[in-house]
Amino acid sequence: MQLTVEFGGGLELLCDSVKIHSVNVDVPNGEEKLTMGDFLMWVSKNLIKERPEMFIKGDTVRPGVLVLVNDCDWELTGQLETTLEEQDVVVFISTLHGG
């Protein structure tokens, strides 16, 4: 599945300062859909190069990291249960940097 990931608010520093990534992610074996929960694990394994604790805490994003799927706050779409589809754009923004 072809997806676009964008990091902002300083999170890009965790992945070689690259803000926008075009990625290809497979739906996990035995699953019908790719959820944000699966995708978060994929991102932290494949895109995050350093200090993963700035991005992930437990099984979800660290508090203070905003997530938008197709420019919609993931708090409206079911957070970890949000299902992703072809060409979706997922944005992660840290609120924790600077003032």
């Binding site: 608010g9 300083g10 905003l66 840290s94 609120t95 600077g98």
Partner: peptide, 21 residues
């Protein structure tokens, strides 16, 4: 709320700098 400030900046595409000191 910080969340709203960041959302506002994101939606309005305001130009800000975000690196930890």
């Amino acid at each position: 709320y910080e969340k709203e400030i960041v959302m506002y900046a994101y939606f309005k595409k305001l130009d800000y700098f975000s690196t930890e000191c």
